[in-house]
Design a protein around this nucleic acid. Structure first.
Lengths: 155, 155
DNA sequence: GAAATTTAGTTGACACGTCAATCTTCTCTC
DNA sequence: GAGAGAAGATTGACGTGTCAACTAAATTTC
């Protein structure tokens, strides 16, 4: 392999900021959720998704697709959450392989009490820092980077 | 608590893209490193940091600071990497509590052979998608968001 | 200079994500 | 309608990150 083009000074600045941001943000969010609601961001995602879906209409595979998660990741997390009493799984009526996921009362209470704090976190970190124009430019850049990566099969 | 301001349509778009990006990018990078170099991004960070430091001048605490990692995370990873023969730890000469971290020959070979592919990945995903102007604006936005979060002690 | 505090680092328990292997059920094809 | 293959989901092993508790050495304080 020929010598690669290493990063120049300006590029290193971006890479450094990028890395701190990308690894730091999820950690901060996890911490906020753990502290204020005793849950992980994964659990929040699941509770939010199930609470918004039509009753008896959400299956593990749908979760895996919409969250872009591995099936087994979903399965492991659902098992833990079922153990905590946040959700229930029951055999799907239409597909013998499938399952329906439902929130228990405890699950509803948990997501309801966690949501306001979580939304505030997202607002205060992400939205309040940028103007409307900036937000749209920011979103476009993220999408651009991601679609280029997808095109090269690096995502 | 009063009813929070939920996200409007435009905000949800950004949040969705943001989430896919922030959780997806590290995963893609981990996959590239695992596939092409048999290592995790954490191991890469450590090898890169140690290889760039002055000999016998890098200690676990320095790593924790510069990578913004928990001390125990550093300790766990160093133990595993020592087990794989990538690094060595020896008692520091000046501070009885401290240690010096050194790369073994295997460690040097590993980082040297992994670096080109990793840099290509970063270039192709992050830099090639944005113009010089866009890169600078992007970096500034990340920094803005992060510093606002730091200010509110949410980071 | 001895006691209290701070600092460097480790450890153990546990939650989490990934991968490969597996099981079951459904669907397609002949 | 039987057999091959695809799809939904689980399992187990393993590497990883976090938190709290801990040890030992250094520094501060009186």
């Amino acid at each position: 392999m020929s010598e690669p083009r290493w990063l120049n000074e300006e590029e290193q600045q971006l890479w450094l900021e990028f890395r701190e941001f990308l690894w730091g943000f999820p950690r901060s969010m996890d911490r906020q959720l753990a502290r204020d609601a005793g849950m992980s961001s994964g659990e929040y995602s699941v509770l939010a998704a199930v609470s918004q879906a039509a009753p008896d209409a959400l299956r593990p595979g749908d979760l895996a697709t919409s969250l872009e998660w591995d099936r087994s990741r979903v399965s492991h997390l659902l098992r833990r959450m079922e153990g905590k009493g946040l959700i229930e799984r029951c055999a799907s009526s239409c597909d013998g392989r499938g399952q329906d996921i439902k929130l228990t009362d405890a699950g509803w209470n948990t997501i309801r009490s966690a949501a306001p704090g979580h939304v505030s976190f997202v607002r205060e970190t992400l939205f309040d820092s940028l103007s409307g124009d900036e937000r749209e430019r920011f979103r476009a850049m993220l999408a651009k980077i991601r679609s280029a990566a997808v095109e090269r099969e690096l995502w």
